[in-house]
Design a protein around this nucleic acid. Structure first.
Length: 219
DNA sequence: ATGTGATCATGC
DNA sequence: GCATGATCACAT
């Protein structure tokens, strides 16, 4: 992908296409449902737009500084799910700051692609929505930064296991793992190393809904 | 084990 | 009805 305009145009051209058609173009088969294929739609759009495959803690288009995010919407245009941003560092966090954080890096420029998330419609028949580019404005950045800082302070204080998804205005911390038995290192209450469930940062739905509403003049 | 892509399913 | 906590598939 040579430049941002080319990427955006390519994404725009996908609007209205069914998942069946998009999958056909890329030789992919459509699963009956997403129960055991939770990331399938995201992968489909990555393939369609030529995002760098693989699982690296980088943006999808590093050369463009762009992160690709699909977001499932209901019939009213409201996000059906929170949006995963990145995994949360739980150790070696002395000196990490907002400016250098993975959250800020990932959200600096996002190519959002709304998708039809209505479960009553067969997956193959659901369609791609109108893509748009987003960069957090000053107030959004302030909210994200504040939440990020509060979460990271608790983690640094050995309080990671006291953080629930209720905390954070727009950015929440939640488990991010294959199952409840997966463990990773973290800092405990007395500064010791403990084993805990890996966590991830997620954007709350009200936050993404506001972005969607503003973009498409909904309500 | 840790990262990517996320949605599922249950409790409130 | 909806968010939280749990979970699924796959790459490295």
């Amino acid at each position: 992908m040579s430049d941002l305009r080319t990427l955006f145009d390519a994404a725009s051209d996908l609007a209205g296409l069914s998942f069946a058609e998009l999958a056909r173009r890329h030789g992919m088969s459509v699963p009956a449902d997403l129960r055991r294929h939770k990331g399938w739609v995201g992968q489909l759009l990555e393939t369609a737009l030529g995002a760098t495959a693989g699982s690296q803690a980088l943006q999808d288009f590093p050369e463009l500084g762009v992160e690709l995010k699909t977001i499932p919407l209901d019939a009213r245009g409201k996000p059906l799910e929170t949006t995963f941003v990145c995994t949360t560092p739980l150790v070696d966090i002395t000196g990490v700051n907002w400016e250098s954080s993975n959250v800020r890096n990932k959200l600096q420029c996002v190519l959002w692609i709304p998708i039809d998330g209505r479960r009553e419609i067969p997956l193959a028949q659901r369609t791609v929505g109108t893509a748009f580019l987003w960069q957090p404005d000053a107030s959004e950045t302030a909210l994200l930064k504040n939440d990020w800082q509060e979460h990271m302070d608790k983690i640094a204080m050995g309080q990671v296991e006291r953080i629930t998804a209720h905390q954070g205005e727009v950015l929440q911390l939640r488990p991010k793992a294959a199952n409840g038995r997966v463990l990773t290192e973290a800092i405990g209450p007395d500064g010791e190393r403990i084993q805990t469930l890996p966590r991830g940062f997620y954007l709350k739905t009200d936050f993404t809904w506001n972005i969607i509403r503003r973009t498409f003049n909904l309500d």
